[in-house]
Every structure is written in structure tokens, then in C-alpha cells.
């Protein structure tokens, strides 16, 4: 799994590539959190268009980041999840608390 960053105004774009499980999520979490702290940003867009697999560790990763973003008054958005991960996103009902930009 790889994590790439970009900035659009006061929004941090987090592009995740590959598979999100408990193993890869712990490293991604540390990288995303330190970037979010370092950059002068408020909102986060998590681009899931290149995530090929995700289990419940991905749900934990998204909710954890959402809590951080919300704690500074920012907004969290999920962008373009592939059909491969739509079942777990639906099941977790995460779409009811995080904005989804299909």
C-alpha cells in the first residue's frame, strides 16, 4: 500500500493505493496524521479510487481520520471508492456520517 498527498487550498488530499488491512493501516495512519498536523489544512479528502481491497481496518482508518478532522472543525470526504470496496462501506453505514464524492 502507498499513500500520496496533495493540497488543494485548505484541504489535504490523501490518495491511498493498494490494499487496506490491519497491517497496512497502522503505517498509513501514522503518515496521514503527521501530514495533517504539518500542513496548514483543515479538511481532508480521502481518495479511494486506487484501493483494491479493504476490510474493517479501513473503516477504522477512515473513522479515526474523520474524528481528527472534525476535532479541528474540518470536513472529511471520501472520493471515488471502487465497486470492490463498496460492500464494506455500505455495511459499515459510514456513508451516513462521512460525505461521499462518487
Amino acid at each position: 500500500m502507498d499513500v500520496k498527498f496533495a493540497k488543494e487550498g485548505n484541504t489535504l488530499i490523501v490518495l491511498i493505493e493498494g490494499e487496506i488491512d490491519h497491517h497496512t493501516a497502522s503505517r498509513a495512519r501514522a503518515r496521514i496524521d503527521s501530514k495533517f498536523l504539518m500542513e496548514p489544512v483543515k479538511n481532508m479528502v480521502m481518495d479511494l479510487s486506487r484501493v483494491t481491497f479493504m476490510d474493517s481496518a479501513g473503516i477504522g482508518l477512515i473513522l479515526g481520520r474523520m474524528n481528527r478532522v472534525n476535532s479541528v472543525g474540518g470536513k472529511m470526504t471520501l472520493r471515488k471508492p471502487k465497486p470492490e470496496i463498496s460492500k464494506i462501506l455500505k455495511m459499515s453505514k459510514i456513508e451516513s456520517i462521512v460525505e461521499l464524492d462518487a
Partner: peptide
Amino acid sequence: ERSGMGFTV
């Protein structure tokens, strides 16, 4: 950050 969804999944 375990979501507590493992068995549910």
C-alpha cells in the same frame, strides 16, 4: 482503531 466490525463483516 479497531472498528469492532470484524465478526459483523
